[in-house]
Design a protein around this nucleic acid. Structure first.
Length: 268
DNA sequence: CCCCAGTCCTGCGGGC
DNA sequence: TGCCCGCAGGACTGGG
C-alpha cells in the first residue's frame, strides 16, 4: 500500500472529506472538516508505514494515518462501486492525484496525528517495533519468557508491528516451527530462523503486491489484485499437500483465529 | 500475565 | 434453487 501511494509525494492537499454513506461511517478522528483545514495547502513529503498502518506525511510533519484492518484499501483512482464506505484526499500538483480510502466492512479508521501524538499513538507500549526493522535478538529478547504460543505472540502488535494472521502461518512454516510452540521453549537459534523467515515472507509478499484472497477484496493502489496468494505454502490450504513434503496441511484454531501448518515439517 | 468471548461490519461459500 | 450459518487479512474491551 505504501509503495502504491508514492506517486502522490510532492502533491499539495486540496481537501479531505468523508463521502456520504448510508451505513455507519468509517471512524475518522478528528472530524473530517478539521482534518481538511489542517492539511489544506500542505505538500505531501513522504508516504510512511509502521506495522499495518499507512501514513501520509505532510510538510509540517502532521501525519494522516490509515489503519485498514481487514478490508480497508487505498486507491489512487475511484473505486468501481459507490456502495462502500469511502474517504477521499484530493491533491493538486501531481497529475490527477487523489487518494481514496475504501473499506467494505468499515472496520478501519483514519486519524490525523500532530508530531507530538505520533510517538504516543504509534510507539511503545501501544505498538512494538516494525517487523522489518526489529532484529532477531530483540525479537528473541521480548518473547523469551512468554508462556504464549508463538503464533499468538507474533500477532500481538505490542510485541511486533506488522505480522497478521496470514503471514504468521506462512513464516512459521518457513521456519519449521509449530504454531503452538510455547515461546519460552524456543531456542535462540530458532528465534533467528523465525526472524529470518519473517523477513523473507514479508519481503516476498511486498514484492508480489500482497495477497488477494478468494473474496477478492484486497487491491493495489492501481486497483489490481496482488499475487502472493499463489505463493502461500499453508495459509487457506487445509487438506491440500504441503508444498515441501506433500503431507496434508492442517488447520487449528488459536485465539479464535485459524492457524495452518504442516504436521510433518512443523513438529511441536 | 494470559485466555476467552463478544464487539464493530459485509459478503461469501457450503450445507441442507 | 434458495436460505441460513459460519467464517474472514484486525483490534479492542471486560471478566475470569
Amino acid at each position: 500500500m505504501r509503495r502504491g501511494l508514492l506517486p502522490i509525494v510532492g502533491g499539495v492537499v486540496t481537501s479531505f472529506h468523508r463521502l456520504p454513506c448510508q451505513r455507519r461511517p468509517i471512524e475518522i478522528v478528528p472530524e473530517p472538516a478539521k482534518i481538511s483545514r489542517a492539511l489544506r495547502g500542505k505538500r505531501v513529503t513522504a508516504i510512511e508505514r509502521k506495522g499495518k498502518r499507512v501514513i501520509v506525511r505532510v510538510e509540517n510533519d502532521h501525519r494522516l494515518v490509515f489503519e485498514p484492518r481487514m478490508t480497508g484499501l487505498v486507491l489512487l483512482d475511484d473505486p468501481p462501486s459507490t456502495a462502500h464506505r469511502r474517504a477521499r484526499l484530493v491533491l493538486s500538483g501531481v497529475a490527477d492525484s487523489q487518494l481514496v480510502y475504501w473499506d467494505r466492512r468499515g472496520l478501519g479508521s483514519i486519524r490525523l496525528l500532530d508530531p507530538d501524538q505520533f510517538e504516543t499513538v504509534l510507539g511503545p507500549p501501544r505498538l512494538g517495533p516494525d517487523a522489518l526493522e526489529v532484529t532477531a535478538a530483540e525479537l528473541a529478547e521480548s518473547l523469551a519468557e512468554s508462556r504464549r504460543a508463538v503464533k499468538v505472540a507474533l500477532l500481538d502488535q505490542r510485541v511486533l508491528a506488522g505480522v497478521g494472521n496470514l503471514y504468521a502461518s506462512e513464516l512459521l512454516h518457513r521456519a519449521r516451527i509449530h504454531p503452538a510452540r510455547v515461546c519460552r521453549d524456543i531456542t535462540r537459534g530458532q528465534w533467528k530462523k523465525i526472524h529470518a523467515a519473517m523477513v523473507e515472507v514479508l519481503v516476498e509478499a511486498i514484492r508480489h503486491e500482497g495477497s488477494t484472497l478468494s473474496d477478492g477484496t484486497y487491491r493495489t493502489a492501481m486497483n489490481n489484485p496482488g499475487n502472493y496468494q499463489n505463493e502461500h505454502r499453508v495459509y487457506d490450504r487445509e487438506d491440500m499437500p504441503c508444498r515441501t513434503c506433500k503431507q496434508p496441511v492442517r488447520r487449528i484454531v488459536q485465539a479464535q483465529r485459524s492457524s495452518f501448518f504442516c504436521p510433518r515439517c512443523q513438529v511441536i
